[in-house]
Simulated assay, not measured.
Amino acid sequence: MKIAITATGDTLTSKLDNRFGRCSYFAIYDPETNNTKFILNPNKEAAEGAGPAAVQMIASQGVKQIISGEFGSKVRSILDDLNIQMVMFTDPEKSIQEIVSLMVVK
């Protein structure tokens, strides 16, 4: 099950970005391969509809869980319809690597 994490940058030392639709990057973690790839969020500067557009992009990556600091109201119903789990993470000081480590079942 691929996991998307909203990120401030494109490295494992980047921090969690609290914004879902307007985050800078999405870190896509694949537990089957233990690899993380980073995707620039093209919707970050959109005048409107950044959240729904980000959901569609993330869904196209095969993600089944998204970790972010917050999710907008428009996004919640779309994620529910797509059976993508939302996980709110409240520690913006954690790096992407630390969050991935917390998600990996040992």
Rank of each mutant, 00 (worst) to 15 (best):
N18Q: 11
T33P: 09
N41E: 10
G51T: 03
S24K: 12
T33R: 13
N41C: 13
G21H: 00
T13R: 08
G21P: 04
L16D: 06
I28L: 09
N35Y: 13
A59P: 02
K74I: 04
A54Q: 06
S60Y: 06
V63P: 07
V63W: 06
A54S: 15
I67L: 14
Q56W: 06
F71H: 08
G69V: 05
F38K: 08
S73V: 12
K15E: 05
R22T: 03
T8A: 09
T11D: 12
G21K: 01
Q61S: 11
G72I: 05
Q65K: 15
D10E: 10
D17Q: 01
A54K: 09
G69L: 09
K64T: 14
G49M: 12
R22K: 13
S14K: 07
Q61K: 15
L16H: 02
E70L: 07
T33D: 10
A50F: 03
N35F: 13
G72L: 04
F26L: 11
G21Q: 02
G51K: 00
E48I: 02
A53I: 07
A54G: 04
Q61L: 15
P52R: 03
L16C: 03
N34P: 00
K37H: 11
A53L: 14
N35M: 14
S68P: 08
F20E: 01
K74R: 15
D30C: 03
F38N: 08
L40P: 00
A47I: 14
Q61F: 15
I28D: 01
K64L: 09
T33V: 12
A54L: 11
K37F: 07
A53W: 08
E70K: 11
R76M: 15
T33K: 14
V63Q: 07
K15W: 02
V55C: 10
T6K: 04
P31R: 09
S60A: 15
E70W: 09
S24R: 10
S60R: 14
K44A: 08
G21F: 10
E70D: 14
S60F: 05
T13C: 00
L40M: 07
I66T: 10
N41T: 09
Y25S: 04
V63L: 09
T11A: 07
F26K: 07
T8R: 04
D10I: 00
A59S: 12
A53Y: 02
P42A: 05
K15C: 04
Y29W: 13
I66N: 08
D17P: 05
I5L: 12
S68M: 07
I58Q: 03
E48N: 12
G62F: 06
K44V: 10
F38C: 08
N34Y: 12
I67H: 00
E45A: 14
N18H: 10
E48R: 11
L12H: 05
F26Y: 14
Q56P: 00
G51W: 01
K37G: 00
I67R: 06
A59Y: 10
V55D: 05
D30E: 13
G49L: 09
A46M: 10
P31A: 08
I5K: 08
N18C: 08
L16M: 11
S14L: 07
G21N: 06
M57F: 02
A7I: 05
T13A: 13
K64W: 02
Q65N: 08
D10V: 00
K64E: 12
K37S: 12
G9I: 02
E32R: 06
G9C: 07
L40S: 13
T33S: 15
G69D: 11
G69Y: 08
R22W: 01
D10F: 00
C23H: 10
F38T: 11
P52E: 04
T36F: 12
